[in-house]
Design a protein around this nucleic acid. Structure first.
Length: 593
RNA sequence: CGGGAUGUAGCGCAGUUUGGUAGCGCACCUCGCUUGGGACGAGGGGGUCGCACGUUCGAAUCGUGUCAUCCCGACCA
């Protein structure tokens, strides 16, 4: 490709609306242009990068035994009603109506469609296992698109779906995919960590995410990991061992005492001269419009995804102070946030109040708890054996544990690995891929079944496996850049090399540059010849910004038989013979394959 | 959806306080000159100032409404 003909416009400045490196670089270097919020044009350079990533994914998926197909992204409402997700998926689903006023959506993922395909064509256990995948655009109406290609509303994704006859078969395929993913990201020049995660709206039991570890804002997920063993997990799923701390109070009897103006845990600790670990903290949430109380030890935070899972909810938010006061009033109390406890609370807004406790509260003895009275707390309370869920237990000092006691706790740095007990570390990551064991979550409700050896009807045991193609390409920029521009890994760079004649008017320089360029092309190197009549500074700046892995500059040195060879990644430069420069590039590119 | 901000040429911005008919840098076109890290000179093209309504002799500027975009929070296969 001649640089004079390459459709690219580099900018002198970074775009003002970009926050993270990949977004800034990709816009400034002329790879992408925003069309509207969260929706981008992929310009020729970007499209080349995306196709490289796609092809790596394609090769490894095919090697792993999967088959590529292509499903529509326009999907009918009916299928989504079968799976139950039309209601559940919420506002993130891009919905539309056709001219007959029939409801449709643009696919955010394709479990429903693939399950319907399987239902039609996968009738016998003899046809399994099978893994089908596609690479196409996906649509998610994100609440807040940001970070350029890292969180768009339209993005390119590879999604694969496996069908097995047993959990064992699924687990085998899951492992197969995990290995394929590891290879894929490695080939793309990315270091990823496979971490345990929550399965979210997709559902299912076991899932892992592939994270590009970064210490920048681009990493939207907290990842906890252990250096001593291989434990690692997304914060929405991580568990830990807690350090020893005081969990039993010194009160000899239960009583309600005055604790004026102790609206926060800190103020209460200060007033009572106790550690926060002696307090049962009661948080009021609104989950799918229903009131939910979350009980957790005072020094710990609630992980909202865990709470959502505990009650099977979709939408969660903390209740407002107004709602809490209203809830108090309805149940015959007069209290405000800071003095709330679970006892005696029955209903709000037409719903029964659900109480969920984190495991940390179970072991507390002689603890402190809100008693729904302003400026008062109960101290010396204990979990009792009797049924006690009304106002009476305020005075008895004994109340039952809620029916739901589970892990709701957000893991924090300084806690210990659940497997080996060593200190956990925390870092941030960009999720570029994930794998799920779905089981029969979709096949059962959608009646997607086959006949087993005994002629008996069985639902498929499914798995699904995603890779964000456009996100992976953008994530690759995050660790690969310097102040002058992008440093693409060779495998996904839009072009492998650029050849720059310093002066296009110098016949000898042009001749040598063209010879090198042709040699590179002949040997399968994707090369660009910068034939523009520009000053060398302009060409160097553009070459660095665009991020060609190799640069061969033909200048005055040619009279001594040398060209300048620069490696973008290391910025190492050397003067060598033209043939030698070409040879290095050809070898590197050949070794890719 | 809560809080904050911004919409003026492809990009980055000034002009808005105090109303008078739109400007700067980069990019783009032409000519000259220049050629090892985003040169220089001269000339040129490009904007219904987000949109609508209103106030006014006159609106980028004032008022009302609306749309869009960005940031923080919440959310996220």
């Amino acid at each position: 490709m001649k640089m004079s003909k390459l459709f690219v416009q580099t900018l002198r400045e970074f775009p003002s609306d970009a926050e993270v490196i990949s977004h800034k670089m990709l816009v400034r270097a002329g790879y992408i242009r925003k069309l509207t919020s969260g929706v981008y044009n992929y310009l020729p350079l970007m499209w080349r990068v995306l196709r490289k990533v796609e092809n790596i994914v394609r090769e490894e998926m095919d090697n792993a035994g999967a088959q590529e197909l292509l499903m529509p992204f326009v999907q009918p409402k009916e299928l989504w009603e079968e799976s139950g997700r039309w209601e559940v998926y919420g506002k993130e689903l891009m919905r539309l109506r056709d001219r007959h006023n029939r409801e449709m959506c643009l696919g955010p993922t394709h479990e429903e469609i693939i399950t319907a395909i399987a239902r039609d064509g996968l009738k016998s256990y003899k046809q399994m296992p099978v893994n089908l995948y596609q690479i196409q655009s996906k649509f998610r109406d994100e609440v807040r698109p940001r970070f350029g290609l890292l969180r768009g509303r339209e993005f390119i994704m590879k999604d694969a779906y496996s069908f097995d006859t047993s959990q064992e078969g699924l687990e085998k395929e899951y492992e197969n995919m995990a290995q394929a993913y590891t290879k894929i990201f490695k080939r793309c020049g990315l270091n990823t960590k496979m971490v345990q995660s929550d399965s979210g709206a997709i559902g299912g039991s076991v899932s892992h995410e592939f994270m590009v570890i970064t210490d920048t804002d681009a990493g939207e997920n907290d990842v906890f990991y252990c250096d001593a063993c291989d434990y690692s997990a997304n914060s929405n799923h991580a568990i830990s061992k807690l350090p020893e701390t005081k969990t039993s109070g010194d009160w000899t009897s239960a009583q309600v005492i005055n604790t004026p103006n102790t609206h926060t845990i800190e103020e209460l600790c200060e007033f009572l001269k106790i550690p926060a670990s002696l307090i049962v903290k009661t948080l009021v949430y609104i989950i799918d419009k229903k009131p939910v109380l979350a009980l957790i030890r005072g020094d710990k935070q609630v992980e909202e995804t865990k709470l959502l899972n505990a009650v099977g909810g979709i939408d969660i938010r903390i209740a407002t102070a107004g709602e809490i006061q209203e809830m108090m009033k309805v149940n015959g109390f007069n209290a405000e946030p800071g003095f709330i406890g679970p006892m005696g609370l029955k209903e709000y807004n037409g719903y029964q109040i659900t109480v969920v406790a984190d495991e940390t509260v179970k072991e507390l003895k002689n603890f402190v708890i809100g008693v729904n009275q302003k400026d008062k707390h109960g101290v010396g309370y204990n979990w009792g054996a009797g049924i006690c869920n009304d106002f009476e237990c305020v005075n008895s000092g004994s109340m039952d544990l809620p029916k739901i006691v589970t892990d709701l706790r957000l893991v924090e740095a300084g806690e210990f690995c659940p497997t080996c007990g060593q200190p956990l570390k925390v870092t941030r990551g960009i999720e570029v891929g994930n794998i799920f064991q779905l089981g029969t979550k979709y096949s059962a409700p959608m009646n997607a079944v086959y006949l087993d050896q005994n002629g008996k009807t069985q639902p498929y045991v499914m798995g699904c496996y995603g890779i964000g193609i456009s996100r992976t390409a953008a994530a690759a920029v995050e660790p690969h850049y310097d102040e002058n521009g992008i440093k693409w890994p060779l495998a996904i760079a839009p072009y492998h090399a650029v050849v720059i004649p310093v002066s296009t008017k110098d016949e000898e320089q042009m001749k040598v540059a063209e010879d090198i360029y042709k040699t590179l092309l002949k040997h399968g190197v994707e090369a660009v010849l910068d034939d523009r009549d520009e000053r060398p500074g302009v060409k160097f700046k553009d070459a660095d910004l665009i991020g060609f892995p190799y640069r061969i500059t033909v200048g005055k040195g040619i009279s001594d038989g040398v060209v300048e060879f620069k490696v973008r990644e290391t910025c190492e430069m050397s003067n060598i013979a033209p043939e030698q420069a070409a040879e290095i590039v050809i070898t590197a590119v050949t070794n890719l394959k």
